[in-house]
Simulated scan of single mutants.
Amino acid sequence: MRRDALIRSWHRLHAWLLPWRCLLCGDAGRERLDLCAACAGELPRNTTCCARCALPLPAPAALCGACQRRPPPWDAAWAPFRYGWPLDRLEARYKFGRDLAAGRTLAELWRSLPPPSPRPALILPVPLHRARLRQRGYNQALELARPLGRTLGVPVRHDLLLRRRATAAQTELDAAARRRNVRGAFALREDMALPSHVALLDDVMTTGATLAECARVLRRAGVARVEVWALARAPQRRPDRS
């Protein structure tokens, strides 16, 4: 109770000294959120999507075509937002612009949403290689996972899943190249036992290549149920017809 009272006092002090301001338009934000009601209402929810990979779909369906043909190496996915305007702007500012206020806002958005049930016993954020971590200064997946884990009462561990080699940025690669790029890039600490139900967490899922490689590592370690959680899921790219 004392901790909750201190948190409430901090939020009142913050609102008095530094009022919440919308990071997108500059208007007054809502309590504990640097987004106004109008901009928050524009965030693209991923309500119609594949149950297995969270790919946004035009109409309700249990599984997308790709998951029907070749199911991914995880059991279910949770991605509450689609990667599109204006969430993509906040994500870019957080991930590449070192805008920690944008990251805090994204974390608050995520932790306010109901999680899948049953909850996993452990959350593992996708790791960065130490060279990329030094360059960026923080792991965006870990910083999103920590407040979410506290809200859900699920432990978060960043020291179990390791990125053992540096990989090229996935941004400009196609799906096949992304799979090759991360093949064999991850490993688990040998001295740690894992629970039977684990959630892998990343900020954005595009093709799912990175999460799939991490999921295979967990499967080989004997994890019975692997879920993938991402704040946002990118829509399927249309083939270039030019």
Rank of each mutant, 00 (worst) to 15 (best):
5 A>V: 05
5 A>C: 08
5 A>D: 10
6 L>S: 09
6 L>P: 01
7 I>D: 03
8 R>C: 09
10 W>N: 06
11 H>N: 09
13 L>Q: 06
15 A>W: 03
17 L>P: 04
18 L>P: 00
21 R>N: 11
22 C>L: 08
23 L>M: 09
23 L>H: 11
24 L>W: 11
25 C>L: 10
26 G>V: 09
27 D>V: 05
27 D>C: 09
29 G>S: 07
29 G>L: 05
31 E>D: 14
33 L>C: 02
34 D>Y: 02
34 D>Q: 08
35 L>M: 01
35 L>I: 01
36 C>H: 05
37 A>S: 12
37 A>K: 03
37 A>R: 10
37 A>W: 04
39 C>N: 02
40 A>I: 00
40 A>Y: 00
41 G>H: 10
42 E>S: 15
43 L>G: 06
44 P>R: 13
44 P>E: 12
44 P>W: 12
45 R>F: 14
45 R>M: 10
45 R>V: 13
48 T>A: 14
49 C>H: 15
50 C>H: 08
50 C>W: 07
52 R>G: 05
52 R>A: 15
52 R>P: 02
54 A>R: 06
58 P>W: 11
59 A>K: 13
61 A>C: 07
62 A>V: 14
66 A>I: 01
68 Q>N: 07
68 Q>M: 02
69 R>K: 12
70 R>S: 07
71 P>E: 01
72 P>C: 00
72 P>G: 00
74 W>V: 01
75 D>I: 00
75 D>P: 00
76 A>G: 04
78 W>L: 10
